[in-house]
Nucleic acid binder design. Structure first.
Lengths: 353, 353
DNA sequence: CTGAAAGCGCTTACAG
DNA sequence: CTGAAAGCGCTTACAG
C-alpha cells in the first residue's frame, strides 16, 4: 500500500509510463518487460501474465524513439513513388495505411524523380539517416535495380510492386499488367475492331512493355495484328494523351479503337476525338488502364482495366511488416494480383464493319 | 598522423559518424558540437568554424532518433486530413513536402474520420507516442477546437488551415473562401443569370458556410437573391452532386446556373444535366470550386474557383518549422490566401433571358 | 564561451 | 528463464 503509493509517485508527471515503471510495478527487470513487449519466447507464462497485467493497467506504450535508437531501426515505413498520377498515389497510400493501422509503424512519404540530379541520393540518405523499418517501392522506381542493390547494401528492407518478377518473391508484389492488357485486346477484338491503336507510357516503366506485349498477344490470339503505325508513345499524362490522340486520329485510315496505357491518356484521347468530330463509342472506342475515378465521371464512362491499387498497397505493407509480426506471415496467396476489365460505355462495335 | 589513423580506426565500421567522432576530431567536447549543430549563439567563431570543417569533411549527420529521444520531440510533421477529395490531399502533401525538402523533417500521414469511434484518440495517441515536431490540420479537422485544445494540453505544436480565423494568427493559414465564392456569384450575375442554385457541402466544414455566405453576398451586390428553394446540401462527393443536381433540375422553374461547393459535385451536376437533356452551358451554367484536374479534362471544361492548395500546404509547413529555423521566419505575408476564378466553358449567358 | 556528468527510454551482450 | 551492466547517440542541467 505505502509501497504502491511510493512507486506511483515516482512516475513522471507528464504521464508517460516507462519500462522502468512497469518493471518496478511487476517486480521484474526491465529486460524482462522488454522481452514481453517484443514477444520473445523465453519468458515463463506466469511472468508474462504478470507483466502484461501491469502494462494493461498502466497503459504503458514503449517509446518509439528510444526503441529506434536501441534497435538502430525506426518505426517508419517509407513509400517511394514517382508515379505522376495522384489517384494512384492516394490509393496506394490508403492501402499502406490500412495495413499500418493499429501497428507501431508510421507512413512517411518519399516522392522522387528519377530524372532529378539528387535522385537516388535523397532516398539513400533518408535510409541511412532515419533507418526506416522498410521501404515500399512502386513503379517505376521499383524497377531500378541499382537502387534496390544499394538498399540491400545499406541493410534496408523493402518490397517492390511491379508488373514483372524483379526480386526474390518475398520482396515482390506482382501485378499482372500483361494479362490485364490482354483482356482489353480481347474485348476490342470480340467487338469486331480490326484497326486498333495503342498509346503507351514512358518506356522507363516496365509495365509499359508488359501492357504493350499483353495487348499484342491478346490481338494475335484473335488473328489480329498491332500495326506499328498505330502505336504511339505518351507520357502517362493528360496532355500526351491529347497529342497522341490527335496524331492517331488525323491519319486517313485511322484506327476505330484505341487502348491507352492509363486513364489519364484515355481522357486526353476523348479531347482529340471531340476535336476530330468523332463520337465515342460510335466512331471511336477507347479503353483505358487503372480505373481511376475519372473513368466513371467522364462522358461516356470509360471502359478500363482495373488495378486493385489499394489492395496492392495493403499487401505490400503487410509483407514488409509481416516479416516479424507472425499474424501477417501467411501472405503467399496475396503476392500476385490479377486485373479485371471494367466494361463501360466508351466501347462498342465499330460502325464501319 | 598516427593520431589521425588511430581516431579514424575508432569510427564505426557501418560508416556512421557520431557526435563523439566529430568532437574528437575537432578537439572539442560533444556539447560544443551539439551547440554548433543546433545553431546556438554562444560558440566562438573560431570554434564554430573548426567544428563545421570537421562536420563537412566527415559528412556527419546527427542521428534523428537520438536527438528525438533527448529532445523529447521527433522530427516528424504530421499531416492530418479528413478531406474526401484525393486531389486536395495530394496537392496539400506536395506543398508540405516542398517545404520539408532539405530539412531534417519527414512527413507522416494521419488521415482521420471525425465520425469514427476512435476519432480524436488516434491522433492524440500518435502525438503522445511519437511526439511529432508539429501537426498540420486541414479542413474540416482543423475546425475542431476540442482537438486543438487537446493538442495544446499535450504541448504539441500545430498549424490550422481554415477559411475562418480559428486560432492565434501564428497558427492559422487562412483561405478566403468567402471572397472566392463571391467571385463565382459576380461572374454568374454579370452573365445575366437570375435563377441561380447552390449545392453546398456538409455543414461540418466551416468553409461550407463561408462559401454559401460569400455566394449570397455576391448575388446581393447585384440585386439578386439566393432563393432557399434553390439550395441543396451535398456531401462534397460525386454521387451527391448527381443527386442534388437531379433534384434541382427536376423542378418546373429550374435554375439556369448552379454553383457547387466543390468540383466533384459540379461533375455530378454534369451527369444530371445530361440526363435531363440540358446542354452545358447553353441550358445550364455550372461553376465549381477547387480547380482540381478534372475541371480541365471534362467537357465542357469547368469554370471554377481556384484554391492554391499546394502553396497553402507549403506555407503551413514553413510556418510550423519556421518557428525555429530563422530563414523561414518572415511569413507574415503568406498567412492568408485569396482565390481566383478560372473562367472556362461551362458558363455563358442564359438562353431564356 | 566551453565541458564533464547524467539522463532520455529502450535493447544488446553477457552472465548465471 | 531472468537480470545487471553497458550502450545506442544525442541533449539537459549544471558548473566553471
Amino acid at each position: 500500500m505505502a509501497d504502491d503509493k511510493a512507486t506511483a509517485d515516482r512516475i513522471r508527471s507528464d504521464g508517460a509510463i516507462t519500462i522502468s515503471d512497469v518493471a518496478r510495478l511487476a517486480g521484474v527487470s526491465k529486460k524482462t518487460v522488454s522481452r514481453v513487449v517484443n514477444n520473445e519466447a523465453t519468458v515463463s507464462d506466469e511472468t508474462r501474465q504478470k507483466v502484461q497485467k501491469v502494462i494493461a493497467e498502466t497503459g504503458f506504450v514503449p517509446n518509439p524513439q528510444a526503441r529506434a535508437l536501441a534497435f538502430r531501426r525506426s518505426f517508419l515505413v517509407g513509400l517511394v513513388y514517382d508515379n505522376p498520377n495522384p489517384q494512384y498515389v492516394v490509393n496506394m497510400q490508403r492501402g499502406v495505411l490500412d495495413a499500418l493501422d493499429n501497428t507501431d509503424y508510421q507512413l512517411v512519404l518519399q516522392p522522387c524523380d528519377r530524372n532529378s540530379a539528387d535522385y537516388p541520393d535523397r532516398i539513400l540518405s533518408f535510409v541511412s539517416m532515419h533507418r526506416p523499418h522498410g521501404l515500399i517501392l512502386t513503379p517505376s522506381v521499383s524497377e531500378d535495380e541499382a537502387l534496390t542493390e544499394s538498399l540491400r547494401r545499406l541493410d534496408c528492407d523493402y518490397v517492390v510492386v511491379a508488373s514483372v518478377p524483379l526480386d526474390i518473391p518475398q520482396r515482390n508484389i506482382r501485378t499482372h499488367d500483361r494479362q490485364g492488357a490482354r483482356l482489353a485486346a480481347e474485348h476490342l477484338a470480340q467487338l469486331g475492331h480490326t484497326s486498333i491503336g495503342h498509346i503507351h507510357g514512358p518506356p522507363l516503366f516496365r509495365s509499359v512493355g508488359e501492357r504493350l506485349e499483353g495487348f499484342r498477344e491478346g490481338l494475335e490470339a484473335h488473328g489480329l495484328e498491332l500495326a506499328p503505325r498505330y502505336i504511339r508513345e505518351g507520357a502517362y499524362n493528360f496532355a500526351s494523351g491529347v497529342a497522341c490522340g490527335r496524331d492517331l486520329l488525323s491519319t486517313e485510315d485511322r484506327p476505330t479503337a484505341i487502348f491507352t496505357g492509363n486513364d489519364e491518356m484515355a481522357v486526353g484521347v476523348y479531347v482529340a476525338a471531340r476535336e476530330a468530330g468523332l463520337r465515342i463509342p460510335e466512331d471511336l472506342s477507347i479503353v483505358g488502364f487503372d480505373d481511376t475515378p475519372i473513368a466513371e465521371r467522364i462522358w461516356p464512362p470509360l471502359t478500363t482495366v482495373r488495378s486493385p491499387i489499394r489492395e496492392i498497397g495493403r499487401a505490400a505493407a503487410r509483407l514488409l511488416i509481416g516479416r516479424k509480426e507472425p499474424e501477417f506471415s501467411d501472405l503467399s496467396e496475396h503476392l500476385s494480383y490479377a486485373l479485371d476489365l471494367m466494361t463501360r460505355q466508351s466501347t462498342s462495335a465499330p460502325l464501319k464493319l
